[in-house]
Amino acid sequence: MVPITTLHYLVVAAALFVLGVIGVLTRRNVVIVLMSIELILNAVNLNLVAFSRIYGLHGQVFAIFVITDAAAEAAVGLGILIAFFRNKETVNMDEVDLLKW
């Protein structure tokens, strides 16, 4: 077998990333989009931690911060979703077009 190198982890991270981007660009449901964003962040975290194996602990510390950030962002995003839902009774991204020309 091929030994598992850092590159493998990076590829996995890239795959996760792509999945997350597809989710963001494609799904109509706002909640699913937010979850896709979490996927993207996780991909990034994986990347960081994979490199920290080589270069020291800095990557891990950064990953912690990213998780913290993700938490904050999720909270705020969901808060916005609730506020929006109260107004429009929908969770579809397509119908959030108030800034349309």
């Binding site: 660009l25 991204m93 397509d94 959030v96 077009d97 108030l98 800034l99 349309k100 020309w101």
Partner: peptide
Amino acid sequence: ARLVQWGLVQWYALVMV
């Protein structure tokens, strides 16, 4: 120019990508 603005976030995200 405004015709580009659909108000759809996902469209913007696509453009960004």
